[in-house]
Amino acid sequence: MKYLKYLFIRVLKIFTLVVFVFMSTAQIHAQDNVKEDALISLNFTENNNIKTIKATVTNQIGEPVEELDLYFFVKRTFSLLPIGDVFNTTDENGVVEVEFPEDLPASDTEGNVVILVKILESDLYNDLTVETTKKWGVPIPDKEYYQQNERSLWAAAANAPMSLIVSISIMILSVWYVIFYILYKLYKISKIKPYKL
């Protein structure tokens, strides 16, 4: 029994090894040899404020690639924001169209956005990223927008509200004027000489 069990485990081990070696070579094979490069050409059109990105995918010999999922992104501060539908699949002409959101803020004050179109995890084609900058975004406010010049209670000491500065100054000045006036008068008292001497 013990021998049988040992044999069984041994066989199982070899079997697993064989399966995995096979699987891994298959995978490496698929990656290195079977996949081919695709080409993406982008066409941007703007009609009646509707901005459309038209991507055409062709293979190495110029034939349109059908049934391929493309991913459309806009570059943001920390990550890439997906645009378009959940799946954007090419048609028989290798074409897919995606509408660019009209109210998306740009990355700069001039309206530039970085648009990326990607092929990801395709079984047949290598990963590919095409990056373009377009003036399609809503320009972000210029740097004056961020400057904290406004006077407020939470601003730095230099930007205290004028009304606060004025009223506190008036109060301090009036009270300390009286204090100094009294000190001056005390000084005057000290200067009055007695008659008798």
């Binding site: 943001r76 501060t77 920390f78 990550s79 924001l81 959101p101 998306l104 803020p105 990355s107 972000i140």
Partner: peptide, 18 residues
Amino acid sequence: YFGDEIDDTVTNGEETLR
């Protein structure tokens, strides 16, 4: 989710949303 209000985008590291 974290992001930039000017960008109108937030991300949790996995998904990115407006």
